[in-house]
């Protein structure tokens, strides 16, 4: 077989009625890496994964798993994939072991190997003490681990995880992070989505940042941060700065020689996010300039760039603001109705 990437997504589009969930998403995942899709809720991450895992048919575009077209040969592609959805889907009356037995049968594992694989998966994820209890009695962390075990049972080439640690406590997250790193060492390609910056920063070898159905940046976390460049200064003139005053501060700051860019964050009371040359006296010089311009300072802070800054420089708002905006637009009733169709 040729050296095809583990996952190839090219110009995928998907629309649900009036909502354009995925406008144009393209990325490529090489074998044996952890690839992160970062973006706020509603960005199109889950829809992209659903198209990849044959749960939804894209309106346009090409998707391949190890050179196998997901659209032309979905049954073949499913053999190469392991999918762990965002919502843990377990049958409450089955025990953990019974669920894994079902999963093994669905993936046509040889009967002589099923027991061994299940024991191995249970041991790997620390589920042995609870294996023969009904899944309805499991805690959230156990349910997620069982879901992971089910996704890995058939040793897929590509493991697709949709928000693997959402809703979990810190300890459970750490367990899953360590486990994913082990999988990568064993050669499994992992594609995961998350809206947690620290998760992507900690795990991903490469990241694609998705916003409003499009990839707005792609690269390693270090590359993306270096691309943005400079240190970050967050400046709040007042608790809620009038737009005119924010514009005045912005114009003043842009004239300073060490300032590269200034963005007004309207979702955070018109605070200013400055990108500055990494020099030790940036903060002091900025404060002097503000004093000279008779502008007050409510709050000021300096930091190294983060993935949130990458997102901010590309979209003009932070990831948190984007999530809050998406949450306020959601209509749970309509979504429920749509899901029942």
């Amino acid at each position: 077989m040729s050296m095809a990437p583990a996952v190839l997504v090219e110009h995928v589009q998907k629309r649900y009625g009036k909502i354009e969930a995925v406008k144009d998403v393209s990325f490529q995942v090489e074998t044996g890496v952890i690839f992160g899709l970062l973006g706020p809720n509603g960005a199109g991450k889950t829809t992209t994964l659903r198209c990849l895992c044959t749960l939804a048919a894209p309106d346009a575009g090409r998707i391949e798993i190890a050179g196998v077209s997901v659209l032309a040969q979905p049954k073949v592609a499913r053999q190469l994939l392991g999918y762990v959805a965002q919502e843990v889907a377990l049958d409450k009356v089955l025990t953990g072991r019974e669920l894994l037995q079902l999963q093994a049968a669905l993936y046509h594992l040889p009967k002589v190997k099923i027991a061994e694989r299940i024991d191995s998966a249970l041991q790997l994820l620390g589920l042995e003490p609870w294996a023969d209890q009904k899944t309805g009695t499991y805690s959230g962390g156990l349910r997620k681990r069982l879901d992971l075990a089910a996704g890995l049972l058939h040793e897929p080439m590509v493991l697709v995880l949709d928000e693997p640690t959402v809703g979990l406590d810190i300890e459970s997250r750490k367990v899953i992070w360590d486990f994913l790193r082990q999988l990568r060492e064993r050669g499994t390609t992992i594609l995961l989505t998350s809206h947690y910056l620290e998760e992507i920063d900690a795990l991903a070898d490469r990241v694609a940042i998705i916003d409003r159905g499009q990839v707005i940046a792609e690269g390693t976390p270090s590359e993306l941060k270096d691309r943005v460049g400079g240190d970050r200064i967050t400046l709040r003139i007042r608790e809620f700065t009038p737009v005119a005053e924010a514009e005045q501060a912005r114009a003043m700051a842009k004239d300073l020689p060490f300032v590269q860019d200034v963005i007004i964050n309207s979702d955070q009371g018109n605070s200013l996010n400055l990108v500055v040359n990494p020099q030790s006296d940036s903060l002091l010089e900025l404060q002097k300039a503000l004093k000279a311009a008779n502008l007050p300072i409510f709050g000021i802070a300096q930091s190294r760039p983060s993935l949130d800054d990458v997102y901010l420089s590309a979209t003009g708002r932070t990831l948190l603001d984007a999530e809050m905006a998406a949450a306020s637009k959601r209509d749970p009733k309509a979504e429920r109705k749509q899901s029942m169709r």
């Binding site: 074998t31 073949v76 190469l80």
Partner: peptide, 21 residues
């Protein structure tokens, strides 16, 4: 169907073996 050989990665799979039941 041939299960992927993780140590070989994609090279361990041949197209002909990936036929559905």
């Amino acid at each position: 169907s041939v299960k992927p050989n993780l140590s070989q990665g994609i090279a361990g799979i041949t197209q002909a073996n990936l036929t559905p039941p």
